[in-house]
Write a protein that binds this DNA or RNA. Structure first.
Lengths: 338, 338
DNA sequence: TACTAGCAGTCGAGTCTACCGACTGCTAAT
DNA sequence: ATTAGCAGTCGGTAGACTCGACTGCTAGTA
């Protein structure tokens, strides 16, 4: 076995051991656990080399080594097999299957529950990004008068999502005008996507036209900037006492998840560049310095529709997380494709 | 000033000081801050009496006093004026007004954003319980076929809420049957509440009847057990380092909020018995032993429709929290009443 | 050249001690 | 009834010390 190969094995042992124990890993522990039959002294030599190259670091002089972001990266690229669904364990596999075999409600709830499932099996916070409303076709449009001067515009999309916007209208607007607007909207939008920009489409009646336009604009706007984020198991972040040492960071993390927007765009950016594992400082958001993100897109009828992901400390079980997101995304996709 | 009166003042000073400093309060501090002109020795005597009666306690022998749940209770009952909206401060008042003057979307979003507002001004986690769907009238019912064998049932309620359930149906069901079912449902439900139990209503066609019934049952079930909880500022819980000493409790708290159901029923129970402030162990849920809950119902057209509340450590600023929930609930109610 | 054994050195973490200071409780005086 | 003053209690902090888990290095071996 060449020396480079052995160093890889040493790094692997360090990562695996550290993931298990959460403590710096000593040369002895590696010599014992790696399966290599070399002495701890040899491991020590390799460790200094690994440290020189930036794969591991020492918290302080007389301590074992801890993987750096770069070390984790090497480990993931080299040793983690994303297709290894067997990394899940039979119990979790069964849990996933059962979950998706059960009955579910409209899209939003399914996605929310999926994030809970993923959190449960990975023991980390989980995120699910829904399919963008853009790609779904409009199945129905309603304009429902709620009270004087208020109309609720509702669009039902082919994927089961329901977009709605409250509109303020002229209180004296007649029911007939609303109905006319509804008809006009229906013929305008049905079977098209909400993504396409609103176009004027005169019906002859000014009040009706105004309402049609307002509803169209509102629904379009919503479809534009809302692919919602579902977060499950956020409380796990608070449990990760050791990883997010200061309570401070845990709190800011939770806040970040509450705000949603940052996370959504991060996930989208990562996935667009084909990244499925983002480790520590690799992503640019400062609050996520100590976190890793393991992602998998799910496909509806072949098209990438959204993303499921796990958010945990950099010291996380990547094998397991990868297997979990792979399984869940696959099953979610096939359920949604039906 | 009688001795009982003075003891009340001492207790008040202890509570107020403790809320500010988070530390046990010494007799000197009380003598200095209470406005009473007595010596610390006198205060000490009163303190032993207060301790004997269970209003305060000593963390250890040579420490100051800390209010007990009972002490907070007395303080709230006696000194906190729930109608004291001026306890909010002009800035917060303005923030609330501006929030409600801005435009908002459908009910669910408004409530969610309201929880965020309340969290922001109180610096604690906030909850909003939505109006029960039961009381709202049905404005529209849709049955939208999504794909072979799937129909989405949608009910739009007069309060702007939209309830939906996904139904599995016979894949060969004709469009006409679905339309017929939709018409039947509309005449069955329009202007009534979802609360009333489903009744058979034969139309003559078996398949249609089955669908009508399935939709009705599903929507009714949903209206029954779903008055949803909106949680804002959950991350504040993690920030309360001192109050929820162990990370453990913070995590379980967050989990509780995620599960929703426990909190919803607690809030409902409390409000039914007219309680607006529940302190520490007063509520029976063990995980909330160190928390207080400050609630205010909001009314839509005179009827109690839901609740807004603040969830914080027992050591919280009750004055401010009371003022906040009072203002927010009042404004939320009047917005929803329109 | 590649590896190993063994030793010296480093440093964190835990324990012990002593001490300071912040309180209280009590007593005696007003 | 109130107060002043004093003695006693106890948590928290700082310093000294030890222990043990490491590493790095050097010299020796295959």
């Amino acid at each position: 076995m060449g020396v480079d190969e052995r160093r890889g094995a040493v790094l692997r042992a360090i990562v695996e051991e550290h993931i298990q124990t959460a403590a710096p890993v000593s040369s002895q522990a590696v010599a014992r656990a790696s399966g290599l039959s070399v002495s701890s002294a040899t491991v020590r030599n390799d460790m200094t080399a690994l440290e020189r190259d930036g794969y591991v670091s020492q918290p302080h002089t007389s301590a074992g080594r801890v993987p750096t972001d770069r070390g984790y990266r090497y480990f993931v690229d080299r040793f983690a097999d994303p297709s290894a669904i067997e990394g899940l364990g039979i119990n979790h596999q069964r849990a996933v299957s059962e979950f998706f075999r059960g009955t579910h409600n409209a899209l939003e709830e399914l996605l929310h529950e999926t994030s809970g499932l993923l959190a449960r099996i990975t023991q980390h916070a989980a995120v699910v990004v829904g399919p963008p409303a853009e790609s779904a076709r409009v199945r129905r449009v309603d304009l429902v008068p709620l009270q004087q001067g208020q109309v609720l515009a509702i669009a039902v999309l082919s994927n089961g999502a329901v977009e709605r916007e409250l509109l303020d209208v002229d209180p004296d607007l007649s029911i007939e005008s609303i109905l006319a607007a509804e008809r006009a909207l229906a013929s305008l939008l049905n079977d098209s996507t909400l993504h396409s920009p609103p176009m004027p489409s005169p019906t002859g009646d000014a009040a009706t036209d105004a309402l049609v336009n307002a509803a169209h604009v509102a629904l379009h706007r919503r479809a534009e900037h809302a692919d919602p984020l579902y977060v499950g198991g956020a409380s796990r972040i608070a449990q990760e006492q050791d990883a997010f040492a200061t309570t401070r960071t845990a709190a800011t993390l939770l806040e970040l998840l509450e705000q949603q927007v940052v996370v959504v765009s991060l996930v989208r950016d990562l996935l667009e560049s084909g990244v499925t594992v983002s480790i520590g400082a690799e992503h640019s958001i400062d609050e996520l310095r100590d976190c890793s993100l393991v992602l998998a897109p799910y496909r509806i009828e072949g098209e990438v529709a959204g993303t499921v992901g796990v958010l945990g400390p950099t010291r996380m079980d990547y094998q397991h997380a990868l297997a979990a997101v792979a399984t869940v995304s696959q099953q979610l996709g096939s359920l949604l494709s039906k």
